[in-house]
């Protein structure tokens, strides 16, 4: 363990990010989760089941108020289906900035690709202790000319488990837009995953969204057909 930590201390920012990605990247999964949206004293709870395979994902809400609402992500495209409207709508442009089912996660956050290494340049800002865990603090700045949602990101990555414990997302003019924090980690199938995290929109007061993973299967057998537009109806 001591040797491992000593070796990791020599890692570059890019290597740390790659190790983090290696740990966090999920190729295939079925997740049962709860999303608690908090607006002042009001709390809204939504439950969902999501299916992920490579770059495709399907999320279906299961709480009574939203039962049947589905979101399909295929590569860089996102569609939604509300059973009441009985219509499939493609989310694009300015709509991507809206909150995902009224939460503090925007559609853009949900859509975020795993190609961050191609879009940002990384630098190691230092080391800090976050929630009693030693972390690397890494800053990602958008590469010139690249189309990215957040100009600058700051992440706190657990030095030992290579899992992101905290993230900050900044606008081009340096304003902190969103902050995410991991509240609970679990080791599942040999990898550390955040099972409870919180996202705050820093432009708005007294709002946050807590995301809790109730159950996760990292080796499901998923048919590609479930990621089709037909499956949305």
């Amino acid at each position: 363990m001591i040797f491992a930590i000593a070796a990791s201390a020599e890692l570059t920012a890019l290597e740390i990010i790659e190790k983090r990605d290696e740990n966090e990247y999920i190729r295939s999964a079925v997740v049962e989760a709860t999303m608690i949206i908090s607006r002042g004293n009001r709390k809204i709870e939504k439950t969902m089941v999501s299916y992920t395979k490579d770059k495709n994902a399907l999320a279906e809400f299961t709480n009574p108020a939203d039962r049947g609402s589905k979101f399909l992500k295929r590569d860089d495209n996102l569609w939604l289906f509300f059973p009441d409207a009985e219509e499939i709508v493609k989310i694009s442009g300015h709509m991507l900035e809206q909150g995902f089912m009224g939460s503090d996660f925007s559609f853009q956050d949900v859509m975020e690709s795993d190609k961050l290494v191609e879009l940002y340049t990384f630098s190691l800002l230092g080391k800090e202790v976050f929630e009693e865990r030693p972390c690397y603090v890494i800053e990602a700045t958008a590469l010139p000319g690249k189309k990215v949602s957040y100009y600058r990101r700051k992440v706190w990555i657990d030095k030992e488990r290579f899992v992101t414990l905290k993230g900050e997302l900044y606008t081009q003019n340096g304003r902190l837009l969103k902050e995410s924090k991991v509240e609970k980690l679990e080791e599942i199938d040999g990898r550390w995953l955040a099972v409870q995290s919180i996202m705050e929109n820093k432009l708005r007061k007294n709002t946050y969204t807590r995301f809790i993973i109730n159950n996760i299967d990292l080796a499901p057998k998923l048919d590609d057909k479930i990621f089709s537009l037909q499956s949305l109806r």
């Binding site: 300015h94 900035e97 958008a142 000319g145 690249k146 189309k147 990215v148 949602s149 957040y150 100009y151 997302l169 606008t171 081009q172 003019n173 304003r175 837009l177 432009l203």
Partner: peptide, 14 residues
């Protein structure tokens, strides 16, 4: 007030 916008590079700005 704060306006949340996207630059021509699609990056968030305020």
């Amino acid at each position: 007030i704060i306006l949340l916008i996207r630059t021509k590079e699609d990056t968030f700005n305020t």
